[in-house]
Amino acid sequence: MNTWVRIVRRREFTVFILIVILSIIFAVSTDRFLSISNISNLLSQLAGVAIAAIGMTMVIITGGIDVSVGSTLGLACVVSGSLLMIQAPFLLVLLATLGTGLAVGLLNGVIVAYGRVPPIITTLGMMNMVRALVFQALGGRWISGIPPEVRTIGLGKWLQIPLAMWVAGALIVVFSYFLSYRPLGRSVYAVGNNPEAARVSGVNLKTTLLFVYGLTGALAGFAGLINVGRTGIVQTNNGMGFELDVIAAVVLGGTSILGGRGTIVGSLLGALLVAIIKNGMILLNIPALTEGVIIGALIIISVLIDLVRGRGVR
């Protein structure tokens, strides 16, 4: 009985119920929502946000935030796009893309952990600097015409489900396990709950911070590779506003912005909810312009629901 009450009271459950209700509404009111091509399309758009949200969840659990993921994704798009154009081996493309993201992320981590600069400041500055770099690298031009045969990571499917979503799923399982059962994973929560207590009980604060920011950068880079694979185009504004989508997914999924609480599965559900709303609105011919009103209202409503139940956001 008690376990049931605990599950029902969680934010993940609220979001899950919302997903179910909306899916039923869309399935009844349109005939395309449940079609295989639509679901596969929805999932391939979801994958990038879901992957970056893994890292963002951890960053926010430590009490931080990373608004530079959109620019990191943009830079990774440039790197992977250029390499795919010259038909470089996939392993090289993958390593270069992850490496690019990791480098940006680690730089964030070093400034936050060793420089003690607040995360919002660090990543805000990084966002602008990396975006300038993206612009410089592209020189105002596009990279387009990347051949489909090297875009498997974005276009490929297995059992009708996009390859990128399989990867996202695997990463979510691995990192959920990691966060719950490995010492470094537990220290992510410890740092967010009480940094001083964590330090005294032997948690290495700096290592933990380097790890979460580095991971977030690498995963944002990977999301960039998927993006290039899916669209085949690299533009200067790739990933602009991506950081807000990822943060919205994590916040909707119940991760406390004050740190110390949250799950990766919650963030996946948050991302799925947003993706379903966007998709359903297109199918129902509701102008995409109203999307922001709905996502914004949902963020506030879901937090208010928690408040009314007396759980609080604090």
Binding site: L244, A248, I295, I299, I300, V303
Partner: peptide, 9 residues
């Protein structure tokens, strides 16, 4: 959270 929602809306 409030102003992120505000930004969207």
């Amino acid at each position: 959270i409030v102003t992120l929602a505000g930004l969207y809306m």
